[in-house]
Design a protein around this nucleic acid. Structure first.
Lengths: 238, 238
DNA sequence: TAAATAGTGTCTCTTAGACAGTATATG
DNA sequence: CATATACTGTCTAAGAGACACTATTTA
């Protein structure tokens, strides 16, 4: 197929295997979690990897990412937001062959469920990002911190946090997303004011959510607003 | 080479050609410019493309990007900052074959010089980003606006602007970068205060730069500070 | 009742922007 | 001298954070 490309016959240029790896994250019990799986590759035994698949001939990269995820967990499309992270292509990143991998960030609105058939696990994202390199297969020890940092940064200036919640949601739930991802405590009053005053971030929905088991006033429900970029941003201090 | 991968024999999966395309930008006469070239591919005659090269077997993606650039203009390494933009991999983006392309953003400290031998041109980045699709080869009409928007966004929260200047520079020059990229006018006094008060953005250098032909007090020189991310950010209003 | 969560009001401190004023160059 | 650019000072308005206070639930 690639032989029609004019430099197909040049020495030192052949085709690479192209794969997609997905860093799938969700909120569970107030913590940000990451889905990991055991790679099929025997040379990587005892290590964890991000779910990955090779790109098929007729398939877009986004479609490969969705397939990598849905073959592992039964995730349907609307519950997951996929966003390209970056591409990893060091020549030796896979010992078997040259594999260029496009990494994706996937944000699920519901907790990730490890599948019984495939060997998968769900771990705290911040812990996995700090694991030593040899607990991961390939170069996935580099991808995981990149994914976490990208998510942390994007929460500031985009409405991405709403992708980690089912709709409608309360502002308390939205605040727990920020607290879980940034690992901070936020003032509920100031958080609310900031969210509501940022145009297009959320819009009020009908009704209220019931109180939790510890009581408390029922919270109003909100939907995501139309905005993807937030102005002003939800800045975290440092 | 890829036959050692376990799904090499699966139907619908073969290797893709992998290429790198570079959106190289620089400041020239107070405007942000973009380097374009005519593709070798005859099927794309009459269209402009970003400089691109296929990735060699033993070559990192960054190295390919640098090669794509330096084969076209005589750019040496320290004068150019390369940053991965995103990867474009729609199955039909290249009519000849499946080509997955990793796009890079390249920021040059000096104006880009079109080479005489290869057919290249330098255009205003904002104009190219608005060109109709058929003036570009492949899907490069999508890459150019992405690159411009990425640069505009990154000027806010990173020190990337200094990559578009030779060191040392004056704060007037740095302001010109922001004005060119964002297409706004900034108050010199407030800009200065913001830059100087942002930790790690710039550090004072020795001496002053001579006045321009229109006079004016000589400006102090500055170098880039160590910071890559800016806190607080240089926010543009909207 | 107390405790918990939602939501409002208000004060203070910081910062961004407008813009006046000073410093030092060219012509 | 006028003009241009660099740089400083200062006022004002908006926003962020701290935190008191009210509202509505569970136990």
């Amino acid at each position: 197929m690639t032989k029609s490309l004019d430099d197909g016959g040049v020495a030192g240029i052949s085709s690479c295997a192209v794969a997609v790896d997905v860093a799938a994250m969700a909120i569970q019990d107030g913590r940000l979690t990451l889905l990991l799986t055991e790679p099929d590759d025997a040379s990587q035994a005892g290590r964890w990897s991000l779910p990955g698949r090779r790109v098929r001939d007729d398939e877009s990269l986004d479609a490969t990412a969705l397939r990598a995820l849905s073959e592992l967990i039964g995730t349907e499309e609307p519950a997951v937001l996929l966003e390209q992270l970056r591409t990893y292509g060091e020549p030796a990143r896979d010992p078997r062959a040259r594999v260029v991998s496009i990494a994706y960030l996937a944000l699920a609105a519901r907790p990730l469920v490890p599948s019984a058939s495939r060997r998968t696990t769900v771990v705290a994202a911040s812990e996995a990002a700090a694991w030593s390199t040899d607990r991961f297969a390939y170069d996935h020890a580099a991808i995981v911190p990149d994914a976490l940092e990208r998510l942390r940064a994007k929460l500031e200036y985009t409405s991405l946090a709403t992708a980690l919640l089912e709709q409608p949601f309360t502002l308390g739930e939205l605040r727990t997303v920020y607290e879980a991802v940034w690992d901070v405590e936020l003032d509920p009053a100031n958080f609310r004011r900031k969210v509501v005053s940022t145009p297009g971030f959320v819009r009020a929905a009908a009704g209220t959510a019931p109180s939790g088991p510890t009581g408390g006033r029922p919270a109003r429900r909100y939907h995501s607003g139309g905005a993807t970029r937030l102005h002003p941003a939800m800045l975290r201090d440092r």
